[in-house]
């Protein structure tokens, strides 16, 4: 939305919007008090558990914090190659 305004009025270089967006992301990480190493290990554990059930594209596997209005969420994006066929 802001981008549209910015483009229409020729102000795409309003650097405070860049600052705010970068701050929002970095603060989500800071406030979570989860270290990058811990996040990486969480990601690996998730990958391991989910791949027992589904064939995952681990190159496209993403786990990150994101902000939805005032709430923080841990969002995992897990591309699936195909369902693993299981003989029950």
């Amino acid at each position: 939305m802001f981008d549209l305004f910015a483009r229409v009025f020729g102000r795409e270089d309003a650097s405070k919007e860049v600052a705010k967006e970068r701050l929002r992301l970095v603060l989500v990480h800071d406030r979570s008090s989860l270290s990058p190493q811990a996040l990486e290990s969480l990601k690996n554990d998730l990958l391991q558990v989910i791949s027992q059930y589904l064939d995952i594209d681990d190159q496209g596997f993403r786990v990150d914090f994101s902000r939805h209005e005032d709430a923080m969420a841990l969002v995992a994006n897990i591309p699936i190659k195909k369902k693993v066929s299981r003989n029950l």
Partner: peptide
């Protein structure tokens, strides 16, 4: 100019 955060931000 939009190059500095204001108080509300």
């Amino acid at each position: 100019k939009g190059d500095m955060m204001d108080i509300d931000d």
